[in-house]
Design a binder for these strands. Structure first.
Lengths: 345, 345
DNA sequence: CTGTTAGCGCCTTCAG
DNA sequence: CTGAAGGCGCTAACAG
């Protein structure tokens, strides 16, 4: 009933347990035949090494931690799924992909280089800094996804949010819109700031002043997009186009438009950010910016694995392109008289 | 630079490492004062136990495996997210929640009671049976989510798919529909079969014959819902209502309706299954069946933890209710003449 | 090529 | 209440 160990195999093979260990680890020191014989016995006994013992002596846990700022809120399901899948794909099967929220820990004492061989942090905001510090001072290999931090010697991988938002806003401007609003991302999230920057930059280049009424708060979830759009629609002078800082909020925004009897894109243009699984299936299909989340995650994971193997730290910031995907939710503006007329019946 | 161990603490406290071990584990054998003194030293040194060593001697890995049939396809993001979040919530922070796909493993030799203290299986189809057998023969505590298997002594937790689908179909029938179609779930998935059963039962009770043309294949993803609906719309005699076996497919189906110029629910009624995050934000808001995925998962996880603690197996099947959520995508049917007229211009 | 010995960090008898 | 000794399963010198 107790699991078979190398000693059991050693007895049957009439060799020492050391020889068994070496044979099973394919050491060149061992005779081909003995090796073969030992392996057959091991197979027959369904031997599988005790990872805890191995970990103890090799000083590796085989755990890769995938940390989110929190798992309880503020993470959208598509984002989460793609992140996990990307990491999972890049990690060798003998590693454990361990999902954690930073807020699981009252303090970071339990996070040691014994408990994680490496850590992937899908970081949202600067609040994660304490965690990053704890991890780096313990010399645990770390990659930072989705956010860049310049001060340190870290590997950062993220989408070019600013460029992506810039393209989206520029697209709206080129379509002829002048009254362009933005529904912003979650306050404090670096991605939110970067997207707003890109948006502002495009406005500036097209000499469109940034109307404070047209910059409304959101927090990346569907409901917040809905609420924000209602605020926008309540304005005396409505925008003719809205850049939503992510697709979830664009969904909510579209809902609000529909409820108000506005047609998208005839009465109002909408663009999103992320290009999640559902965007193409909305009616109208959502024009948005594709963010390669799964790629960011898998790239980060494989670099981490490399870094662990080579025992060296890499400090670099990798910006992955975010491209505009043109679909049906944005078009040239109606004249505003038309809008007011129809919308107010 | 090497981590502090109980021996380091022992030296400073001028006691044996045994005493330190006991003190840190709050053994009643140790004097209050010594205990206190030792703990302070431990704190000061930022001591954190080496889990591998602990695992080795205690014969526990502190790993809880959360297995999906596969991570590469066939799992929707909302489903995945809610599952992980439910399990995460129920698992004590000193455990590792390890995400795995069954198809990560060529064989199950590496899955031992040393590598996982317990396993949660989010099971889709009967193909998982080999995995289940492997796990149970190794006496690793297991809970099976989302699917029931009767032969064994297992803990099964799942939504009442049949009842849920029944309510949805009954609702459509009571609305006055007679031409009701079903877009089926992924072939081979138990949930798909159960939902179809519930649907069929409702049809039978309302004396509506099951038209084979009205039973179209799907595989739970958005695109398959779209494709299926297009097939339905190509029929000489179109259905007036469609039960989609999950929300993702309902999204796709709605898209196909819109493209065909049909209004939902005026021309055609749609209901889904799952009640995912976006359903309420569709236009029209999706009438669907709420499936408590996160609850299933957290319930499973906490039962597993209990079972591990008590070292006993619990065999039980728990069916969690799935309730109809009435929103706007289903209504009483038009007369078919109207539909033909408008749809064909 | 193989065996002996030692030790990873921790917990658990068994003595005192 | 505390300490000494032993061992969990495995790998790594060091000898032969």
């Amino acid at each position: 009933m107790t699991a078979t160990t190398i000693k059991d195999i050693a007895k049957l093979a009439r060799v020492s347990h050391t020889t068994v260990s070496r044979a099973l680890n394919d050491s060149p020191l061992i005779n081909r035949e003995t090796k073969h014989r030992i392996r057959e016995i091991a197979d027959r006994l369904n031997y599988s090494p005790n990872l805890s013992a191995k970990s103890l002596v090799l000083d590796r846990s085989y755990n890769i931690g995938l940390f989110f700022s929190t798992l309880t809120s503020g993470t959208s399901s598509t984002f989460f799924f793609e992140t996990v899948r990307g990491a999972h794909r890049a990690i060798p099967p003998d590693y454990n992909l361990v999902i954690k929220g930073i807020d699981d820990y009252p303090d970071f004492g339990k996070i040691t280089n014994k408990s994680f061989d490496g850590i992937i942090l899908m970081s949202q905001s600067a609040d994660d800094q304490r965690f990053i510090d704890a991890v780096t001072t313990k010399h645990i290999p770390l990659v930072l996804l989705n956010r860049s931090v310049d001060d340190g010697m870290l590997l950062n991988i993220l989408a070019d949010d600013e460029q992506g938002a810039y393209s989206a806003a520029q697209y709206l401007a080129r379509l002829g819109h002048r009254k362009i609003a933005i529904i912003e991302g979650r306050p404090g999230f670096q991605s939110a700031a970067r997207r707003k920057n890109g948006f502002a930059k495009a406005m500036q280049e097209h000499e469109i002043p940034l109307n404070p009424d047209f910059c409304v708060a959101g927090n990346y979830d569907v409901q917040s997009g809905y609420d924000a759009m209602r605020r926008l629609l309540g304005l005396a002078e409505r925008p003719t186009a809205v850049f939503c800082s992510n697709d979830d909020m664009a969904f909510g925004a579209m809902k609000a438009c529909m409820e108000a009897g506005l047609k998208v894109p005839e009465h109002i243009s909408l663009v999103g950010f992320d290009d999640n699984h559902f965007s193409a299936y909305l009616t109208p299909a959502l024009t948005t910016v594709r963010r390669p989340i799964e790629l960011i995650s898998s790239e980060g994971a494989s670099r981490l694995i490399q870094a662990i193997g080579r025992k060296e730290t890499i400090a670099e910031t990798i910006l992955l392109g975010a491209e505009l995907v043109i679909r049906q939710s944005a078009a040239a503006p109606y004249k505003s008289v038309d809008i007011m007329e129809e919308a107010h019946e």
